[in-house]
C-alpha cells in the first residue's frame, strides 16, 4: 500500500501550496483531511481495484486523480460561491475597479501548470506498462467482433473456437497468473471490447489488429458487452470473461476438441462464482 500513498500525496502536493494564500479555505482542508489522513483508506470513487496487474495501478491512478480533482474542483467551487455571496450587492457604490494583479495572475497560471504536469507524469508512469506487449506470451487469444457477436479462438489449439451472438453470451476463457495476449479485430464495423474489472477497453476495428496483454490475478466471471455503437443489436452484444488458474487453462485448452468442450472443461475446474447483481468480481478469490 505504500506506493499508493505516494502517488496520491505527490499528486495533491501542488494544490495544497495555494491554500495559505486564501482565506475561508480551512473548510476544504477540513473536508479533505479525513480522506488524506486515512492513507490507505482512500475510497475507490466508484471503481474497484480490478483483477489485473494493470488495473491495480490504474486504480491508484484514479484515486490520485480523484483526490486532486476534488481538491482543485472543490477549491474553485467554493471560491466561486464565496465570491458570489461575500460580494453580493449591498449598495450602489462603485467598487474599486481592479483590473490586473500580476501576482495573482501568475499564480493561477503557474499552479495549474504544476498540477497538470504532475498528472501527466503519473499518467505516463501507469500508461507505458499498461499498453506494452511482451514478445512471447505464454497464452494467446484472438478476438474477432462482428455484428453482433464475438469469436474467440486460441492459436495454441486451432480446434478451439468459441462463437456466440447477441445474448448467447460467448465465454472468453483466460488464465490467471500468466500473461495472455489478445489480438483484437473486427469483421465489419467498429465494436468496443470492454472489461470493467480489467479497467480496460479497446476498439475492435476492421483493418486494424490491436494487441494488448493482461495479467489476471483473480479467478472469476465477468459479464460485459460491446461498448461502441455497432448497429441495431448493439445493446445486446454480450460476452462473458472467465478466468481460471493457468494450469487448468492449459490443460483444458490442449485436451479440448472444440470451443464447447473448452468452455465446459473450464467451467468444471472452477465453479461458477459470478453473480452479477451482488458482486463486481469473483466472490471467493484465490491468487493464481
Amino acid at each position: 500500500m505504500n506506493d499508493h500513498a505516494n502517488t496520491t500525496d505527490s499528486a495533491i502536493a501542488p494544490a495544497s501550496t495555494r491554500r495559505p494564500s486564501r482565506k475561508g479555505l480551512g473548510w476544504i482542508a477540513l473536508a479533505i483531511a479525513p480522506i488524506v489522513l486515512s492513507g490507505c483508506q482512500i475510497p475507490g470513487f466508484g471503481i474497484n481495484e480490478g483483477v489485473t496487474e494493470s488495473s491495480h495501478k490504474v486504480y491508484k491512478l484514479w484515486q490520485g486523480f480523484m483526490v486532486t480533482g476534488l481538491i482543485v474542483g472543490g477549491f474553485t467551487f467554493l471560491l466561486i460561491v464565496y465570491a458570489a455571496i461575500r460580494y453580493r450587492r449591498r449598495n450602489n457604490e462603485i467598487p474599486r475597479q481592479t483590473q490586473y494583479n500580476t501576482l495573482v495572475e501568475v499564480l493561477y497560471t503557474v499552479i495549474p501548470t504544476i498540477i497538470v504536469a504532475g498528472l501527466f507524469y503519473f499518467t505516463i508512469v501507469v500508461e507505458n506498462p499498461e499498453v506494452a506487449v511482451i514478445k512471447n506470451p505464454p497464452a494467446k487469444v484472438k478476438v474477432v467482433a462482428f455484428q453482433w457477436g464475438w469469436r474467440f479462438s486460441y492459436p495454441e489449439n486451432p480446434k478451439v473456437n468459441i462463437v456466440g451472438q447477441t445474448t448467447e453470451n460467448p465465454e472468453l476463457i483466460m488464465p490467471v497468473g500468466e500473461t495472455i495476449q489478445v489480438d483484437l479485430s473486427s469483421l465489419d464495423v467498429v465494436h468496443g471490447f470492454y472489461i470493467k474489472e480489467f479497467s480496460f477497453s479497446q476498439y475492435a476495428q476492421p483493418g486494424v489488429v490491436n494487441k494488448f496483454d493482461f495479467k489476471v490475478d483473480k479467478v472469476g466471471e465477468f459479464q460485459t458487452q460491446c461498448t461502441q455503437m455497432c448497429g441495431l443489436y448493439h445493446s445486446l452484444m454480450y460476452f462473458k470473461v472467465k478466468t481460471i488458474p493457468a494450469s487448468d487453462y492449459h490443460q483444458c485448452l490442449t485436451s479440448s476438441n472444440s470451443g464447447d468442450e473448452f468452455v465446459a472443461c473450464a467451467n468444471k475446474t472452477t465453479p461458477a462464482l459470478y453473480h452479477r447483481n451482488t458482486a463486481t468480481q469473483g466472490a471467493t478469490v484465490h491468487h493464481g
Binding site: 471503481i47 494493470s54 495501478k57 490504474v58 491512478l61 484514479w62 486523480f65 480523484m66 480533482g69 497538470v116 498528472l119 499518467t123 501507469v126 500508461e127 499498461e130 499498453v131 468496443g192 470492454y194 470493467k196 480489467f198 479497467s199 480496460f200 477497453s201 479497446q202 461498448t227 461502441q228
Partner: peptide, 14 residues
Amino acid sequence: ILLASPPLDFFTHD
C-alpha cells in the same frame, strides 16, 4: 481532466 489520461479513459470511454 480525468478523461485526458489514457489509462483512465480506457475504462470510461463509451
